[in-house]
Amino acid sequence: MNFKRIYKYGSPPNYFRLCLKYENWFTVPGFLLIIIGCYGGLFLAPPDYQMGDAFRIIYFHVPSAYLSMSAYAYMALAALVGIVWRSNVAFSVAKSIAPFGASFTFLALVTGMLWGKPMWGTAWVWDARLTSEFILLLLYLGYMLLHASIREQKKADRAASVLAIVGVINLPIIHYSVVWWNTLHQASTISKLSSPSIAGEMLWPLLVMIFGYGFFFWGVICRAGATELLKREKRSNWVKEYVEEHQS
């Protein structure tokens, strides 16, 4: 059976070892890319002719927004795997993605508002993307709150996972209904945003930042997921062995 191979590969001790081994393969490039991206975005890129230096927040806003949405998809995927294979590994990955996803969502919202202030003259505009970002934050909070409200870990994992999966089915519907609702009101405001012909020297730091955020995210999830797994599996022999190994 193929599943057996997945079981073996995704068994807690294996996953834990893999995480610790490859964690730095993500965090180190992530940090480097972010530093390069920051330098490129904040110093090398020319100021925007319309927004001046204020546009530079795009280098934090766009990667956070991308990451917040893809993190939700990863979380739902992990939740699905957890439910189907009853895998503690997948559940701990899903659980540890949630707070980071929520943080990036929050970051995307804050940077969006900071950007909005010089752009629109006001911090909050009922822009479709900002609004669906806000809804995304609510979905993350719902997941975390549901998980925290159910006292038993196993039950909390499965219940919150159902919510994550339902959320991911609903997310596109929510997004498009918000877009549709929005286009009726203020099509002009977003068109300013959606069609900037971005110059190459402005673009590359953005791409670098997006990749840097992604690498950094996976590095952090490696560590957070492994820690979560260690907590959950504390009864099992491999954790005892690991602890003994590292105490001496």
Partner: peptide, 26 residues
Amino acid sequence: LTLSVRYPGALMTLILFPLSLPILIF
């Protein structure tokens, strides 16, 4: 989902609101 939660009031609102938003809009 919240059957075993003792005081699910705020939690239910938080779950219900984002999921029902498209219905409210349309």
